[in-house]
Structures are given as structure tokens and as C-alpha cells.
């Protein structure tokens, strides 16, 4: 008991020291939280790998899916400055559009699906990407013209999220759908890790797309303009960058990445109309953890959040996975709102 009191006392001193540090030396606090969080996440990862490697592997698979969604979300958030609450439902639309376009039959090597899936993914990417551009012209563009605040955009995105979900429900109904039925055995890897070929496909697709996004953002003119606009909209405008053009590309990229993320989620589990909305909190947690506007941040955040969610299931009810994402989000907002990679404000 006495030990407990002493420990609580120490914890309180630590907390007061931190609060003092934040007030007196914000620069030091910032550096300390930056390093501290990296150390914390690193230590957590090592711990997780030792305790349950299988959960970490599942975390990485889901993290890949969340990363694809979060990169699009962070680009939209950084460039248009508003929280797109429809991003999860854009993923869900992608999954269902691929379901619509998917011609089953055949299989590529050990995968559960054939080339029809590649085609379906492309159809989903193009339709969600182009669809996002069209919706921008119909909804967000008029709001921009009117000079609405960011919150109005966020509410509009929520209205769109509900609309998308309703449309999918009208067409397919609430019952789960699945791309390919049947039992797909997992491979046994060293250290007792089991992974299905489809899950390797998920990770590989994600790696490929993230590489493509990096080439786009760091090597092409429009990609650099996207980063520039995310940094400083006003300066981008006075430099002669056309915001409308950059916004169009942002939706195209963000929308198509969301579509792939949705399809991959469908491959990993199944398709339900609320699959996207239930990923919304992990998506935002990943985005804010990494720092809004930062693609590296979205990737790191997605992995941290997803691995933490999976590993947490060894102690707590899986029903609380959403709460794990939420608690990480709140902790980050309390300690370091700009995230791991975000800009100082």
C-alpha cells in the first residue's frame, strides 16, 4: 500500500514536471515529446513482437489497409484543411464497386482470386477517384467559392458519408458480401506465424501503391505542388499554382487510394455497408498521430494504431479495438497535437 502511494506520488511529480516544462520551455517539451514518443512506440513494437508475433503480423496487414486510407485522408486534410468524414465511406464504396466489377474464376498462384480482381481494383480506383472529383465540383467547390469555414466542409462530408452508405444499402442491402467464398489455408512461417497468400497480396499492393505515391509527391511537378499547397495555401497561390488543379489531383489520388484500401479490407474480411465508417476512428487516429498533411506520418500512424489495436486483444475484449484507437488519438492530442511529423504552428 505504502509503495503504491509512493508510486502515485512519483507519477504526480513526473506529471507536474511535464506540465511545467510545457509551460516554461515549449521548445524543450516539443523535442522531448518527439523523442519520447518514438522511443515509446519503438519499445512497444519490440514488446509486441516478443509477446505475440502473430498479432503484430495481423496488425501490419490491417495497418497497410489503414495506411492507404490515411494517406488519402491526410492529403485532403493538409491541402483542403478539412476533416473528410466521408473517407471511410469512400473506402466502402470502392469495395462494393469492385464487388460489382469482379469476375470470379481462376486464381493467380496461391491467391484466392484471379486477374478479375486486378481489373476490379482498377475499376474501383477509377470510379471512386473520378467520383470524388465530381463530388468536389458539385459540393465542395461551391462551398469554397462561398468561403465557408472548414467546419461546414466537415458537416457536408458527413452528409455525403450518409448518402454513400444509403446508396450502397439500397443496392446491396445490409447483409455481408464476400469476394471469393471458400476456405483459403494459411501458410506456416517460422516463429509460428501464419499468413494467407491473400494477406501477402494486401501488403505487397500497399507497398507498391505507397511507393507510387512517394514518387508522385516527391518527383513530379503536381506532387510537389500538392505538398506546397499543404504547407502554405496562400503562398502557393501567389506563386501561381492553380489551387483547383491541385485539388482535383488530390481527390483523384485520395479517392483511388481509398478505393483500393476498401477492396483490400474486403479481401481481408468481408464487405458490409458500415466497414468504412467503423474504420473512421483508426483513420483519423493514424492521421493525427502522424501529423496532418504528412504521408510518412499517415503510414507510421497507421502501423502504430493498427498494431496497438491488434495487440490489445490479448488483454481486452476485441470489441474495444475502436477505443484503443480513440485513446491513442486523445493522448496524442493532449501531448503533441501536431503529431510525429506535423509542422509546428
Amino acid at each position: 500500500m505504502a509503495e503504491l502511494v509512493a508510486r502515485a506520488g512519483k507519477a504526480r511529480t513526473l506529471l507536474t514536471t511535464l506540465v511545467m516544462l510545457r509551460r516554461e520551455r515549449p521548445d524543450l517539451f516539443d523535442a522531448a515529446t518527439g523523442i519520447g514518443l518514438w522511443v515509446l512506440f519503438g519499445a512497444f513494437l519490440i514488446f509486441a513482437v516478443i509477446t505475440d508475433l502473430q498479432l503484430v503480423v495481423v496488425g501490419i496487414i490491417l495497418g497497410s489497409i489503414v495506411a492507404l486510407g490515411a494517406i488519402g485522408l491526410t492529403l485532403v486534410y493538409g491541402i483542403m484543411k478539412f476533416a473528410n468524414f466521408a473517407h471511410g465511406d469512400m473506402m466502402m464504396c470502392g469495395a462494393y464497386l469492385a464487388f460489382f466489377a469482379f469476375i470470379s474464376g481462376g486464381s493467380i498462384g496461391p491467391l484466392s482470386f484471379g486477374y478479375g480482381m486486378i481489373l476490379a481494383i482498377l475499376v474501383a480506383m477509377i470510379s471512386v477517384g473520378v467520383g470524388s472529383v465530381v463530388i468536389d465540383r458539385l459540393v465542395y467547390h461551391p462551398l469554397r467559392q462561398r468561403g465557408s469555414g472548414v467546419v461546414v466542409f466537415a458537416i457536408a462530408s458527413l452528409g455525403l458519408a450518409i448518402t454513400f452508405r444509403a446508396l450502397i444499402l439500397l443496392w446491396w442491402g445490409p447483409q455481408p458480401q464476400i469476394y471469393v467464398t471458400g476456405i483459403h489455408p494459411a501458410w506456416d512461417l517460422p516463429f509460428g506465424v501464419k499468413i494467407k497468400p491473400d494477406q501477402i497480396f494486401i501488403i505487397a499492393t500497399t507497398l507498391f501503391l505507397i511507393a507510387a505515391v512517394y514518387v508522385l509527391l516527391f518527383r513530379t511537378r503536381i506532387g510537389k505542388a500538392m505538398r506546397a499547397m499543404s504547407d502554405n495555401l496562400e503562398l502557393a497561390r501567389v506563386s501561381g499554382i492553380n489551387p483547383d488543379q491541385v485539388i482535383m489531383w488530390t481527390w483523384l489520388i485520395g479517392g483511388s487510394l481509398a478505393a483500393v484500401a476498401g477492396v483490400l479490407l474486403g479481401i481481408q474480411s468481408q464487405l458490409t455497408p458500415d466497414m468504412g465508417f467503423s474504420l473512421l476512428l483508426p483513420l483519423f487516429a493514424a492521421t493525427i498521430l502522424g501529423g496532418i498533411g504528412s504521408p510518412h506520418g499517415a503510414l507510421t500512424g497507421a502501423m502504430v494504431v493498427s498494431i496497438a489495436q491488434q495487440v490489445s486483444t490479448s488483454w481486452i475484449d476485441p470489441g474495444y479495438k475502436v477505443a484503443v484507437a480513440f485513446i491513442l488519438l486523445i493522448l496524442m492530442l493532449a501531448v503533441r497535437p501536431r503529431g510525429l511529423f506535423g509542422m509546428k504552428t
Binding site: 459540393v139 461551391p142 462551398l143 462561398r146 465557408s148 461546414v152 458537416i155 457536408a156 458527413l158 452528409g159 455525403l160 458519408a161 450518409i162 448518402t163 454513400f164 452508405r165 444509403a166 446508396l167 444499402l169 439500397l170
Partner: peptide, 21 residues
């Protein structure tokens, strides 16, 4: 009917923001 109503709520939010904020 439930999905139609859902669609309606979604469109109502977007429509109100655009047409009669």
C-alpha cells in the same frame, strides 16, 4: 424504406448547406 430515409437525411444535410445554409 430505412435506406431511402437515410439517403434523404444525407442529401438533406448536403442540400441545406448548399442551397439554404
Amino acid at each position: 424504406v430505412h435506406y431511402f430515409r437515410l439517403l434523404f437525411v444525407g442529401l438533406l444535410i448536403v442540400g441545406a448547406l448548399l442551397l439554404r445554409p
